[in-house]
Amino acid sequence: MAEHADNVTAARRVSGGTRRSPEPLDPGEIKSVPVRHPGRWVGTVVVVVLIAVLVKSLLTNPNYEWDVVGKYFTNESILRGGLLTLELTAVSMAVGILLGIILAVMRGSPNPILSYAAGVYIWFFRGTPLLVQLLFWFNLSALYPELTLGIPFGPQFVDVDANALITPLVAAFLGLALNEGAYMAEIVRAGIVSVQPGQHQAAASLGMTRMQTMRRIVLPQAMRVIIPPTGNQTIAMLKTTSLVSVLAIAELLYSAQIIYSRTFQTIPLLLVASIWYLIATSLLTIVQTRIERRFAPDTYEPGEPFLGRLRGNLVWLRPRAAQDATKGDEHR
């Protein structure tokens, strides 16, 4: 206490403006009373109670049929469906990214026809529901019974039956990839726009062509902006592939549906599918974080781990010295 008083007078002397060398303040760590957050405590209690209720029902409600979940978790057709889901995701994203880059470059082209064409494409594919697009591709043969390859308005070389070419799987790939292209185009464009115009000029002044500038200078720098949302798109795509179950394609969801339509164990099979989706999206999230860190190594800052933050919030778990300081202050 006496020491404390000394510090105060020292501080007064300094603020009073006298330039006599003040006694040094206690250089130790600041021991202050944290601000109380009663609202957070109420919220915490509510959340903890809700979690407890949920956990109890998960463990005790027999309708979850966890034994059935376990039985079908590694069922062969479920695994094959999961694999097809991954394939759909990978191919649609790869084609979508490529398409997105082409569309984004077209969109920025000085040629108004190219720019508008890309704009209309993006407008159409973002403006109509993916489910409608999938059904559309599936029923393409109703619109064009025969597909031909040849010179437009000129001679035709190959004729194919649309029904034979556009199998449900092809319709699924078309629908997912073309739709994804529209979203990726906007993401890539945002990345390109984020690169300073001076970079284009510097590249041009060295004699680089537009293509070289785009490929070697602009796109690599745009990656920082492009990669995070692309990761999100990939994760979203993984889940979106479940939409193609309406085309009777045996991906993960439809594989589960086939089984429960036979056994009527709807809930446990939906759980099987959900758990696999969760596993896949979690893995993708880890990959995404890694890639982001690689492309922006100096901007990545790790967050404080969950337990550390928890400990920081609970005053009674703090080290003894801090506790004593808190108590002392409260008594005054």
Binding site: Q196, G198, Q199, Q201, A202, A203, A204, S205, L206, G207, M208, T209, R210, I217, P220, Q221
Partner: peptide, 24 residues
């Protein structure tokens, strides 16, 4: 054409106010 313009520019060095170094 673009290619010819590029060839001409390659003969002329330019230094900018904002440096414009390739940051990657």
């Amino acid at each position: 054409p673009d290619r010819e313009v590029c060839r001409q520019r390659a003969e002329i060095g330019m230094v900018f106010q904002d440096f414009n170094l390739f940051s990657h």
